[in-house]
Amino acid sequence: MAHITSIGASKFTTLDYVANTANNANSTAADLHALFVSNSSTILGTETATDETKESAVKHVGNIREFPSLGTPANIVNVPVYGQAASSQVAGQSDAPTLEFTLNYVPADHAGLDVLRKSATRLCFRVRIADADITTDANGVLLADNADKFADFYFFGTVASFEISPSLSDSLQATIAVTIEGDFNGPFALVADSSTSTYALPA
């Protein structure tokens, strides 16, 4: 089982994305996984074989300095009730959060993000939360086998802004804001038994 099962820091959390024009914001775990992985082989219990091969279109955002909170914030509405000493509360439609990622900016690595902002390209993002190092390919995109522990969250959106912050006392930084279309999906991970590996929510 590869879901995170203990308390730990998420210092190996990463962000990947792939261009996506299909209207599949309510996709299943397998559909979302397939956007980033070109094959998912059978694992025969040894838990040593790599179980993911990166799709060629997947891009990795390196040198992330700070991640935003993931999830949908509450929108609580107070409702007066006649004859009741205190009002009641109901859950209204939640507003999508603003996601801002702060990067240690490397122009050669991050220039593509501003190109995506200018073109308003629809993307599927994957945030992989992990507290230990996970297998990566030559381009730094995270792969995994069923011995790794991680939690994948997906969302659809676009790069809305790209701001560079020069500094005389710290590393050169950039901040990107990402719009969200629909809700978050996850946490998903590889769940293995003695002969196979599937990609699913925690049991």
Score class of each variant (00 low, 15 high):
97 P>A: 04
97 P>C: 04
98 T>I: 14
98 T>V: 15
98 T>L: 13
99 L>D: 06
99 L>A: 10
100 E>H: 13
100 E>Q: 14
100 E>R: 12
101 F>S: 00
102 T>N: 05
102 T>R: 01
102 T>C: 04
104 N>Y: 08
106 V>C: 02
107 P>A: 03
107 P>K: 00
109 D>V: 14
109 D>M: 13
109 D>Y: 13
110 H>R: 02
110 H>W: 06
110 H>E: 03
110 H>S: 02
111 A>D: 11
112 G>E: 11
112 G>R: 09
112 G>W: 15
113 L>G: 10
115 V>L: 15
115 V>A: 08
116 L>N: 07
117 R>H: 09
117 R>M: 09
117 R>I: 06
118 K>L: 14
119 S>N: 09
119 S>P: 00
120 A>H: 11
120 A>V: 06
121 T>Y: 08
122 R>C: 13
122 R>M: 07
122 R>K: 15
124 C>N: 12
125 F>I: 04
125 F>H: 03
125 F>M: 05
127 V>C: 10
127 V>Q: 04
127 V>K: 10
128 R>W: 13
129 I>L: 00
129 I>T: 03
129 I>D: 00
129 I>V: 06
129 I>F: 05
130 A>W: 11
131 D>G: 15
131 D>E: 13
131 D>P: 09
131 D>Y: 11
132 A>N: 06
132 A>L: 07
133 D>M: 10
134 I>M: 08
134 I>G: 01
135 T>N: 01
135 T>G: 03
137 D>H: 01
137 D>A: 02
137 D>S: 01
138 A>D: 09
138 A>H: 02
138 A>E: 06
139 N>T: 09
140 G>P: 01
140 G>N: 02
140 G>S: 02
140 G>M: 04
141 V>L: 04
141 V>A: 08
142 L>G: 07
142 L>W: 09
142 L>M: 14
144 A>G: 10
145 D>P: 03
145 D>L: 06
146 N>C: 12
146 N>H: 07
147 A>E: 14
147 A>Q: 12
147 A>Y: 13
147 A>S: 15
147 A>G: 14
147 A>V: 12
147 A>H: 12
147 A>P: 07
148 D>M: 08
148 D>A: 12
148 D>Y: 10
148 D>C: 13
149 K>S: 12
149 K>D: 15
149 K>I: 08
150 F>A: 12
